[in-house]
Amino acid sequence: MKIKSYLYSQLSLSFLPIFLGLYFITSIIFLVKIASLTSVITIDGFELFKLYSYTIPKIIFFTVPISFFISLVITLAKLSSEYELIVITSFGLNPMKILKIFFPTTLVLSLALVVISVGLIPKTDYLMDTFLAKKKKEANFNIKASEFGQKFGDWLIYIDKKDGKKYENIKLFKTEKGLDQFILANEAVLNNKDGELSFRLINGKAFYIADDELNQIDYKTMDINDSIVNKKGFIFTDAINYWKYNLTRGSDIDDFTFFILTSLFPLISLFLVIAFGYYNPRYEKNRSIGLSLVAVVIYYVITKYLTKNVDLHSLYIAPTLWIIGTYYLYTKTTKKLY
């Protein structure tokens, strides 16, 4: 029990610096991408933080598997360099028993990554796309005070005064099927709901003028929409329906398989942790970090190739090939010595 606690304490000392470093670097990359959006839309500090929060699941997904795998290797390599693994082995903890100690935590981590990647990332992507569509629609809408010839949807619009999203003395006019429609309002507020703009007119009159009659309506509030949007395709409700909809239509299959295979990377690479972490410092050099980085690159290249070419079949082909290959490497290096 004490050895188990000691191993996890050493793992935490390795994991936190690596994870925080990668998290910081990845956050900077995403923040730069968000900042580039300011050339198209205007966002304040709160909205910047909101957009960044939508990227957090992706940042965690991209950083945690690599951080955890490298941390495991570094932990065992450090113990090897200080001859502690030799002492631990002398107490009866061979490499497979040490692997079993780390297995439950690695399993929970991989399952959590599956939930984050398959469950949270589609939701946050949808929220970000909705937010950006809303802001872009608002950016394209720029009615100026005291100017003629401006339009809001099908309406010609003229305003006397503008303050942010609040307007004063508004006139709206349009002709439709031989009927002239003229609306006056003392005040108006622009609303933007998921990229659909509408004016809420306050305290005014509406006139409907035909060839033989004139109708007048006095109102306290009236909503005028920019346009009626017919949404087609899938409306996001939850991750299960999202993937069911896309997979049955053959879209986003490579994303789905990549998410799962990347999430499983720490779990199916445990034999590599033993193979890279165990070495005799008297006769061998510590190459654990270099070997770990090479393994990460190879796995991601294989994963990308299989997800692009064999679709859902990569979910069992990639783990099977990886486990067989890593176990073979383990038997040829660590197993025969320890």
Results as ranks from 00 to 15, higher is better:
residue 7 L to C: 02
residue 205 K to S: 07
residue 288 S to H: 00
residue 311 D to P: 11
residue 244 K to F: 11
residue 274 I to T: 09
residue 239 A to N: 02
residue 332 K to V: 00
residue 100 K to Y: 05
residue 55 T to A: 02
residue 22 L to V: 01
residue 323 I to S: 08
residue 287 R to M: 00
residue 277 G to Y: 00
residue 163 D to K: 15
residue 3 I to V: 09
residue 312 L to T: 10
residue 117 S to A: 05
residue 41 I to G: 12
residue 183 I to T: 06
residue 260 I to P: 06
residue 215 N to H: 13
residue 23 Y to F: 08
residue 171 K to E: 08
residue 18 I to Q: 11
residue 101 I to T: 06
residue 116 I to F: 08
residue 152 F to V: 12
residue 42 T to M: 14
residue 178 G to T: 04
residue 257 T to C: 14
residue 120 L to P: 01
residue 212 D to L: 04
residue 155 W to S: 04
residue 24 F to E: 01
residue 33 K to H: 12
residue 32 V to L: 08
residue 299 Y to Q: 12
residue 128 M to E: 12
residue 8 Y to E: 04
residue 10 Q to L: 08
residue 237 T to C: 01
residue 151 K to N: 13
residue 313 H to L: 10
residue 35 A to T: 08
residue 189 V to Y: 11
residue 105 T to C: 11
residue 308 K to S: 03
residue 261 L to D: 05
residue 144 K to T: 00
residue 75 T to W: 05
residue 128 M to T: 15
residue 171 K to V: 03
residue 320 T to L: 00
residue 28 I to P: 04
residue 79 L to D: 07
residue 111 L to Q: 04
residue 72 L to P: 12
residue 109 L to M: 04
residue 78 K to W: 00
residue 281 P to K: 11
residue 163 D to C: 11
residue 226 D to C: 14
residue 136 K to R: 10
residue 93 L to R: 15
residue 168 E to V: 02
residue 9 S to A: 12
residue 47 E to N: 07
residue 7 L to Q: 05
residue 146 S to K: 11
residue 204 G to V: 03
residue 74 I to C: 05
residue 88 I to K: 14
residue 183 I to C: 07
residue 64 V to M: 14
residue 280 N to I: 00
residue 44 D to K: 13
residue 97 K to F: 05
residue 276 F to R: 09
residue 235 I to F: 01
residue 161 K to M: 03
residue 58 K to P: 03
residue 203 N to P: 10
residue 185 A to F: 01
residue 1 M to E: 00
residue 164 G to N: 15
